[in-house]
């Protein structure tokens, strides 16, 4: 079995594979990464730090691009969606 890490997305516990990014944790938690200006739910899109759709709050720091941050044990991820 591959190693897993436990993180929390909007309070819910999610097990992600080691090496997963926060953006992946958001998708696995079936959460949305943000709500757009017009109120649409959005998810990670480009996966490479360009589109900013996956921005969320990580361990209290806002506006982090989830796809550029590796999950650490007990990481606290808050998405808007």
């Amino acid at each position: 079995m591959p190693e897993t890490i436990t993180v929390r997305v909007n309070g819910a516990t999610v097990e992600v594979p080691a090496g997963a990014t926060a953006a992946v944790a958001v998708v696995m938690a079936r959460a949305k990464s943000r709500v757009s200006v017009a109120g649409q739910p959005r998810m990670p899109f480009c996966g490479m730090g360009t589109c900013f759709e996956c921005r969320c709050e990580i361990n209290g720091e806002t506006q982090k691009r989830g796809c550029q941050v590796l999950c650490q044990r007990d990481m606290e991820i808050r998405s808007n969606g």
Binding site: V16, A23, V24, M43, F45, G47, C51, C67
Partner: peptide, 19 residues
């Protein structure tokens, strides 16, 4: 813009980082 529509390389990157 619907959830679960990704870039092609976008999905690739997400899969490679654990999705």
């Amino acid at each position: 813009t619907l959830p679960n529509v990704f870039g092609a390389g976008g999905l690739q990157a997400l899969m490679k980082t654990g999705l």
